[in-house]
Write a protein that binds this DNA or RNA. Structure first.
Lengths: 253, 253
DNA sequence: CGGACTGTTGATCAAGGTCAACCTCTGTGG
DNA sequence: CCACAGAGGTTGACCTTGATCAACAGTCCG
């Protein structure tokens, strides 16, 4: 996979490296997904809510959000899309987009149409399994989000979000840094975890005063990871890590 | 698909009939998923939270819930599993189960191990695409649930849940009945939509007094579907229907 | 007939929403 | 270099939604 990695620096590859190991056919199939690379500034709609034309979206650099706007102006952010995320690869199977996708920083991304997607997984069943794996991780994320929204209070939700973003960035980058860039505004955080902007501000200040996190502009740091995890109800078992490697004894290819 | 349908009455087949059309190889692959059929009374744990052994679960008859219990006793129901649901087919790709599955009525179900699943989709790529489609629908459900929990009030959440369950049962059964059986207790409803039992009771009574729904024991009826949809913020576009039929021109098989 | 479970209703309380003022950056144009 | 504007963030005062506690009623099953 080395050559492809150099040709097309793509955060998804970093993630997939745990699973695939450079079969030429797989590489070719994967590179097909990378076509149609685009760039956009912050604040642009990448996929319209209710769109009939369906593409999965592959984030290379920058942050985006997947969100749904209610007619009366309320907005729910369903999840943050970070570099290496492949959002809703099964989307094209449904009639229309249930949610919009918007950039919140300058973003480099690819739209992957249904044709390309189906062709890729047909050409490489192993790649199909990889996408399945990606989708399973996204599903786990959504489930955890539901738990946070349904049964956790403001402090716990904020703590969980901070931990989740830090953890995802860490997994994607491979660097165990305690600091990370947090481009989302408090309004976005509020819309993601179902709180008001004001209460997000208060709760964040509370966590900071308790020495759990520190914010310097858009750079956030986790000062007390243990407390953060305790508040966020994150245990070993609550975060389903991917399998360490694709089980080769299964009849995949 | 007719013969298989008779041999193994299975609600999933009804759903998949929109997509598959009886290639012998596909039927064989599908029947493989049906192995290991089990039955259980209400209130049993089918999959343990944090389980290392991973299987997808296929519901034939009865209702189950997918839920997560926090250490302090709080419970969040992530979704209700109805006949024909194939819960989290990608689950086995992750290290451990993030959520438990429990029956809430007597349930007939199958556990589908990773081996059987991978074998089935390898044998029939078309079946793989079908499962992708099933997973996409489940994803849409989870997203809608997030929107309800994050940005809707009690009345809206209840209305949404009633509509969703009615709609799913209707799709699964194919019968456009305005009545349906509702085996879930108010405690489960509360745990699903992030409210207290007491408030669920009050809100349901409110909807009933306004002539929108009617409850007679475990049989519920929707008296004013239009109002229900308005309250639940359900528009044409908010529910991504599946594509009417699998697009045959794509290179799947 | 009794007990457990589920649902209903009233009274009170608290978490978080809303409104409003103010502050702190940061970028821009004069 | 300063004035200004606008966006994002903070803080205080007050209010609303829904949680909590408690009593009681209906129902199901032994």
């Amino acid at each position: 996979m080395g050559t492809l990695d150099n040709q097309l620096p793509c955060a998804l590859l970093t993630r997939l490296q745990r699973y695939m190991d450079g079969h030429p056919a797989d590489e070719a199939a994967l590179s097909r997904l990378n076509g149609e690379r685009r760039a956009t500034p912050a604040g642009r709609r990448l996929i319209e809510q209710g769109a009939r034309e369906r593409s999965a979206i592959l984030i290379h650099e920058g942050w985006a959000i997947q969100h749904r706007n209610l007619p009366d102006g309320r907005r729910q952010i369903i999840d943050f899309l970070l570099p290496g995320d492949f959002c809703d690869p099964g989307a094209f199977m449904l009639r229309q987009a249930g949610a919009a996708v918007s950039s919140i920083t300058p973003v480099s991304y690819s739209l992957v149409g249904s044709q390309a997607l189906l062709a890729a997984v047909t050409q490489s069943p192993r790649l199909g399994v990889c996408l399945w794996w990606i989708a399973a991780q996204e599903g786990a994320l959504l489930r955890a989000h539901i738990v946070a929204l349904g049964r956790m209070n403001a402090r716990e939700r904020i703590a969980y979000l901070v931990w989740e973003l830090w953890h995802r960035l860490r997994l994607a980058s491979g660097q165990p840094s305690i600091e990370f860039r947090m481009p989302a505004s408090q309004e976005m955080i509020a819309d993601a975890i179902g709180l008001s902007v004001v209460h997000v501000s208060r709760t964040l200040s509370g966590l900071e005063q308790d020495g759990i996190i520190r914010r310097r502009g858009h750079t956030w740091r986790i000062d007390d990871l243990e407390s953060l995890c305790r508040i966020a109800q994150v245990t070993d078992r609550s975060w389903p890590e991917p399998m360490p490697r694709h089980p080769r004894h299964h009849p995949v290819a």
